[in-house]
Design a protein around this nucleic acid. Structure first.
Lengths: 145, 145
DNA sequence: TTATATTAGTTGACGTATCAATTATTGAGC
DNA sequence: GCTCAATAATTGATACGTCAACTAATATAA
């Protein structure tokens, strides 16, 4: 009896994670004006002068295909600039445009506001503990099987 | 200085949540043989004799359109049966087929194995605290703005 | 009873992630 | 130098979620 309801709660945890994601996606975008992934890409670009798509992909850790598509769209919008490496034509280097560099500041302010809202009633202790647990979950998922 | 790195960690929490989801989706499906949403639908059906799509949609809380499509595919696979309410033709009632009722047992065992793996190094205390925090996050997201 | 509103379900358009296959370029071994 | 392997990027197919528009059936109100 003591153990029997333990799994039910475990299931709730996993379901909660799933639902949090589903609800976050549209809310994040309507608040910040940009998707989470795309902002993450821009943020990485913000930190460097120029970077290859491959290296960028490794940093954000999403599929190559998705990276290509995001960057193409960001290029169409004039947020980023892409150019081939003259030394090795396989590589495409990406950098933020001036406009991109300006816009990202606003996006990040909105993201900060969003995050503050989501965690507003969490103490420093709780945040630390939560991050630690999420990190463990992530590792467990990666190492599973 | 003390406060300044607090936001960085908050950001990590949100990014972690996002990445956990992205990694869970394919892993869950390859482990259990079914997607999380679809299993949730089947699970709700398992609990009742018959239910309208509308009521089912409210329970799992995803878009009507997604519910319709899932159920149609599950029907094609012979997992569920659908019929119109003769009293009110707007309603479609859904129920598990015999085959569906059998198969879901296996799916749920695999899900249990998956969840156990993901949370294997969590104490009862931690699980409780984690669930509580996730619940708060979910509420904060819903109430945001 | 007839026009209008509401409700359940479906379909279409879109965004974005995955995996697999393909293209283009470079590097390595013979 | 030429073949074959490795690598970066792209494209195609598929899955699944959202919102919006639509259809069909029923309820309401004049």
């Amino acid at each position: 009896m003591l153990l029997s309801n333990s799994y039910i709660d475990d299931e709730k945890i996993i379901n909660r994670l799933y639902e949090i994601h589903r609800r976050t996606v549209p809310k994040f975008e309507s608040c910040t004006g940009i998707s989470q992934t795309r902002l993450e890409l821009l943020h990485e670009l913000y930190e460097v002068e120029e970077i290859s798509q491959r290296a960028l992909q490794k940093k954000v850790n999403i599929d190559h295909a998705a990276v290509t598509r995001h960057l193409k769209q960001l290029e169409d919008k004039g947020m980023v600039v892409r150019r081939k490496d003259p030394k090795d034509q396989r590589f495409t280097y990406v950098s933020l445009s001036e406009e991109g560099r300006l816009k990202i500041i606003h996006y990040r302010e909105e993201k900060e506001r969003f995050i503050s809202g989501v965690l507003h009633d969490f103490s420093a202790e709780e945040r630390k503990s939560l991050l630690e647990m999420l990190t463990r979950i992530q590792r467990n998922i990666e190492c599973f099987e």
